[in-house]
Nucleic acid binder design. Structure first.
Lengths: 207, 207
DNA sequence: TAGATTGTTAATCGATTAACAATC
DNA sequence: TAGATTGTTAATCGATTAACAATC
């Protein structure tokens, strides 16, 4: 069995990717773990350790080729798959995500929007017509959706997850503040905004 | 020196809080670490360990009083401070956060919105008139803002953070995908959506 | 009392940091 | 060559899990 890679490492890769892309734009060609670490407040040892989990990308005495490393990380993260997203729940947050420009620059595209509210179904958000949740299976299939984004109220989140899985999405990004039960083979990432805000409150209270 | 409490523990407290509040609503009065763990997919040992970091809240052989534990966690997280929030950058995401109902239920209130775009300044979002960023210092002071939420583009995020700190906010919640430099005494929480989505892409690619 | 469940210490596991040989 | 910097092994640190005495 292949040794599993820590979530901490995986979560740092997007930071490396982001920084490398910025460097590429400013025409920096070579970067050392030291300089990359300085920019991100991560130790160079940590960066080298993270990278060698996936291979040997650097040159001793020189550093890393910015473009090459960026492309390698992009591939490790699977960004070259150009995953297709469906947003379920076109409220304020869902609508904001439908307009979120950074997705495209990471290779994701929002291809479907779904809601159950008849006042929202049929309207256009960022050029996409909102479909009815009751037509989910057909829409997910027609639009070849890979990832379902859940931005419905917590009370409806589990049903939404079940429906998305029945419609054959390959992964779920959940913004509802509730623990979802999904099969082991469906990757699930929770984006619970109340955790970050509560942690901030905690640290502010310590001062 | 007091032994510092791990971020992992702090990040689990909001989950406990959320679940306890749900239980309180359904009139469950007593909960064991076993049952709480079952609902959240966290081991009961982990929960007991987390809680005893802050005190002894349970009764041996019985469990925890739901309401009492909920209130204790609320206090540990500092939610009783009823922090006042200002959102800087009223684009899609900032606007969505201005309308985010879950803040209120955690004791936070959005009291100010700021933007630099003259087309947005002066408009009302969720009943709050958007102020001009150039008046930040005065607005933050007048509205007694505690927390600055950064939803401006990455290129403007550091300047925004500097201005918020100069205006005496006590903490920063940053949604811009960039590493911010802030003084040690200003708690900063980053909410980088591209990390979660990239991690999801990674796990989907492994299948 | 017997059964249940906490609080806490000890053991394990995993992640980060330090050190350094290899080498460009 | 000398200086710089990677890749990797060893040491340390910290978090989770296991075990169990205390006690309701």
């Amino acid at each position: 069995m292949k040794k599993s890679i820590s979530q901490a490492t995986i979560d740092r890769l997007p930071l490396y990717f982001r920084t490398l892309r910025l460097m590429e734009e400013t025409e920096i060609n070579i970067i050392s773990s030291d300089e990359l670490g300085r920019r991100l407040d991560i130790t160079p040892e940590q960066i080298r350790k993270d990278l060698t989990t996936f291979g040997q990308f650097g040159k001793k005495g020189i550093g890393y080729d910015v473009r090459e490393l960026k492309d390698r990380i992009s591939n490790i993260l699977g960004l070259q798959n150009h995953w297709r997203l469906a947003i379920v729940g076109v409220g304020h947050l869902g609508g904001a995500l439908a307009n979120y420009v950074n997705f495209a620059s990471l290779g994701f595209s929002v291809v479907a929007l779904l809601d159950k509210n008849p006042k929202i179904v049929g309207t256009k958000v960022n050029g996409i017509t909102v479909g009815n949740i009751s037509d989910m299976k057909e829409i997910i299939s027609d639009k070849a959706v890979d990832i379902g984004i859940i931005t419905v109220p917590a009370t409806e989140a589990q049903d939404t997850a079940d429906a998305l899985i029945a419609a054959n999405v390959k992964g779920i990004w959940n913004f509802a503040p509730i623990k979802l039960n999904v099969p082991d083979n469906i990757p699930l990432v929770n984006e619970d905004l109340s955790i970050g805000l509560s942690a901030l409150s905690y640290h502010m209270s310590q001062n």
